[in-house]
Design a protein around this nucleic acid. Sequence first.
RNA 1: GCAGGGAUAGCAAAGCCUGGCCAAAUGCGGCGGAUUUAGGGUCCGUUCCCUUAGGGGUUCGAGAGUUCGAAUCUCUCUCCCUGCACCA
Length: 944
Amino acid sequence: MDYRAIEAKWQKAWDEARVYEVEPNEKKGMLVTAAFPYVNAPQHMGHLRTYGTADAYARYKRMRGMNVLYPMGFHATGTPIIAFSKRISANDQELIDELKTFYHVSDENISKMKDPVFIANYFSNEVEAGMKLAGYGIDWRRKLISIEPIFSKLIEWQFSKLKERGYIVQGSHPVGWCPNENNAVGQHDTKHDLQPEIDTVTAVKFREKGAGTVFACATYRPETIYGVTNIFVNDKISYVLAKMGGESYYLSKDAASSLGYQFQISIEKEISGAELLGKSVVNPANGEEIPVFPGYFVDGTIGTGVVMSVPSHAPFDYVALERLRPAGYDITTDRYKKLIQIDNPSDPDAATAKIPALFYLQKINADASSPDDKIDEATKLVYKEEAHFGKMLVGKYSGMPEVTARDRIRDDLIASRDAFNVYTISNDEPVFCRCGYRIVVKIVDNQWFINYGDPAWKDAARQGLSSLEVFPAKYKSTFEKVIEWINLRAAEREQGLGTRFPLNPGHIIESLSDSTIYMSYYTFIHIIRGNGVAAEQLKPELFDYVLNGNGSIKTASKATGIDTLVIQKCRDSFEYWYGFSSRHSGPDLLWNHLTMYLFNHVTIFDRKFWPSQVIMNGSVNYEGQKMSKSIGNVIPLVDALARYGADPIRFVSVAGAELDTDTDFSADSCGGVTTRVDMLHKYIIGLADMKSKELGHLDYWLYSKLHSKIAAATQSMDRLEIKAAYTEIFYSSINELKWYMDRGGNNEIVVREFIEAVTLMLSPVMPHVAEEFWQMLGKSGLVVKEEWPASNEQMINRQEDTIESVIMDTIADVNNTMALTSKIDVNKNKKVSEVKIIIADDWKLKAYNALAKSRSIGSAMSNDFGAGKAVVSLYLKQFAKNLNGMQELPNIGSETLQKAFVEASDYLSTRFGCKVVVESEKTTKSQRASRALPDKPAIDLEWK
RNA sequence: GCAGGGAUAGCAAAGCCUGGCCAAAUGCGGCGGAUUUAGGGUCCGUUCCCUUAGGGGUUCGAGAGUUCGAAUCUCUCUCCCUGCACCA
């Protein structure tokens, strides 16, 4: 099969027939959308999953009688493309090499990529071309890109609606920040793509005895303040005296500069850490006076550069004090206060430990001389155990679980102005911007948010969810959780491509917030373009009318200068398509995009236009591994298409695994598909040598398989169980056809009908191959325009199924028996010369079914089966072990079964390589005849 | 830490909701054989253990329970994965 040739051929045929350019008609409309791709790279195999699944589903629904629209757009807003262009401008060799060798981008185009808009256009064209090569049934007239002016008009309208409803609010919040480039940084802005994690720590104020200058100790565990024996500064680094919020602080020099992004700080003078030693400070919790000691482990770049020492519960503090003891910094261990009681059922010793820090150090065989990572391990262990099992022993919240007390004590300290919160980057390792500077936390003031925490809005979202079909269904509960959890979300950004934020035109609308209702645009954007409407004409009145039915056509027309007929067409189109919409994406987008999509829809649109379905699919692995640049196994889609052919790739990535699991793409899995396509191809060619004739058992069997297959596949497809559907449609069909032919089946009309139905069902996933087959089958139209086959229940014949499976089982039994008996000494040097197959008498079936029904040998025996009581009783006894497991068998008479075996005897004879004789239990002379069961003929082998 | 998902034969994966037709689909891989037989491809058989007539034994992360009967239901434990935001 020359995939490239048939792909080109049928893609051209589809284009010419404009089969995917759809308009409203008398059928029910359905809009299938997939999250539009971000165009900072060409697409790779991984993209295929979502777009391929959406395409297959769209094609399936079309065949099921719906008028389906599958449009596509491109996402280019936000910062990654900007970052990309900066790297090109900076002549980043790594990126340039990747583009050249991997994606085959020309030097000329690379040089143009200093311009971010060029990047967006270049890659959106690439992606579009790839999607066309993959054969997606997309209505390209409706293509949009999120940085074009008419897109912005919709987004501006959307934000005006959110503002009207009071969902746009202002506040301050912390962000990861590069002090060099002066902007917020996310994961893709950092070295090694680390996500800067922001955490809050409590800075507790220990005031210097006499002077009142503050040592602010940053801590995750304010509840341990009752056990502070001293505080630590690093005597090897620089500190400053600084004014902050009306008080004077000693802070490490580094901390003072990074905290400057969170607080107003003015530095008064620089001093060395050593100068701070010997001072004494007051513990705000209990008024105790404690000394300032040198702490070798204090990192000036973390927190405030000052830490409090709780040797009883913090292994680092314990170790530091042990090490300081010889230098004369001596605090006797009887002053170490145990603050938290641990009652860990699996470790009773923890409860009696006097100094938990020491206890856990010893538990992992560490002591004061151990390396830092060992002490770190002990620290984590203490934290974990105390959080799990700890109860407070001292202070106001004595008796309370440690974690609860922690929050109360922190709140109390803050209320009494003895502490304040500090944000910190909490990653295990320092996070650096791509420019090389270390990331700090900045508090951004007057930041605009979308308030997804609004209770009324959340309620509406819950209602939206209740009428939403979620596939796979298990994600519905996740969806509920996310609705609960989602809260304020920044709506604007300083940098990036996109739509200007109306309330602060110097900023850009945050790039996930501008992609929550754009799907509605697909329903009419081609009408706007087709009528030469300019972006400036897209006034709110237009969207009010088209999307909400508010106002009137006249006012909309007057405000925009657009013809009333055009506006009406837009409104009609929107109403037609948006009544049933299906959204495809990955489950990772549940936590942001999909939930924001739901929230925005329920507040902006009328209920009948709320989302109908959300479908989430897993990703694509390559040869068992996650695709990633670092492994170097990301395959550009265009390369893969050329190598394996579009349909095999589509099949593997879309139908190779169930929706919620990752598919594994490999040369082997593709090869498996292509060899089977070739087999089907051969069978179609073979039709020419067949003739139609009267139907026999085997023909009815194949029909039965076909119709139960159609029923099963249809049900699976309706549930988006694509793998299950295509295992039936593709793999099983081929096995059945093969079996049918091997068994001597050659009835043309049966095979033809079978293959026709299979071809139809194959077309959503392998549309090119299906078209080719359809043509070979002598059909004139396009298969994409055909209907999905219907299952005729009357053709599902359990009798024929059972007869055939009895034959299959018998073959396995004979093989097995031959193998076993060949080991018998008497059979050495002999061969099986004849296989006798003995069909059970009719009474055995009746007796079996009577027993299966009554589950009691006694009551079954009360019937007269026309055989001697003793014989019947002996026969039924063999089932006694498993009475409850018995299932009634279909009513197949001995004669019918015998006839089927006789018809099969030529085939059986070639399988076994010897003569095959079929006899009935009544007339045979075989000693083994009594072993015959209704669904298991007796076997008698003759060795010669 | 918080929240969610998972553990099935060499690997991947279905089955679990609705217990019995489950030694457990399917696909890869392995092994043996065939094909005028280098390899590859294709085809046939086999792939938990035992078995001198189609049989038996032990399995579905571990343990306990419910039931005539558990991969499937309940409880406990162990281990793994994902997400935790302003970022596409």
